[in-house]
Amino acid sequence: MLSFKAVSRLLYLTALLLLAPCLWAKGVYMTADQYLQSTFPNTEPERKVIWLNAELKAQISKFMYRPYQGLRIRYWQQDNRSAWIFEEIGKEMPITIGVTLKQQQVESVKILAFRESRGGEVRYPFFTDQFQGLSLTSKNKLSQHIDGVTGATLSVSAVKRATKLALFLNQEALKQHASKPLQE
């Protein structure tokens, strides 16, 4: 017969096993500097700023599903590659997401910091690699479907929104650059 002590131990172990994924999810995996160094190795990318007018903010709000605060967004560029860093809330806490674009396509998506208690699986390559080569459709949607991650729906959605935002802003930056010198 199982003693009370043995049952207690069993329950404690079960609780630990249930909680383990939550404990592993949080963390800062890369600083902004490390991300930029890995994106533009041995070179100093140009620091740029894109200004948002009311019309752009309205368009952004449509696919971000929230009003966008702020009038300018920083990004880094070298030749035809650009890097964008956003903080997007998954459920309650901001996820820091780095999106690298080449021309008008996604080169890579990296999770620099994850602060939610669950959903940290979005940082793994099996998820982020799905974004490679994607572009933005005329309806401001990603050009291909992204498979979700069970238990990380809101984090997946946050990463998708950030990627769409990077693609959208890159498009706008190119337009602004084509029509006039980019305001800084």
């Binding site: 500097d33 605060q69 702020g70 300018r72 967004i73 920083r74 860093i85 910091a113």
Partner: peptide, 16 residues
């Protein structure tokens, strides 16, 4: 913030 009170930008540790 602009003088009008409009938010221009938020700089967080993710931007250094």
């Amino acid at each position: 913030l602009m003088t009008t009170g409009e938010l221009l930008e938020t700089i967080t540790p993710s931007l250094g």
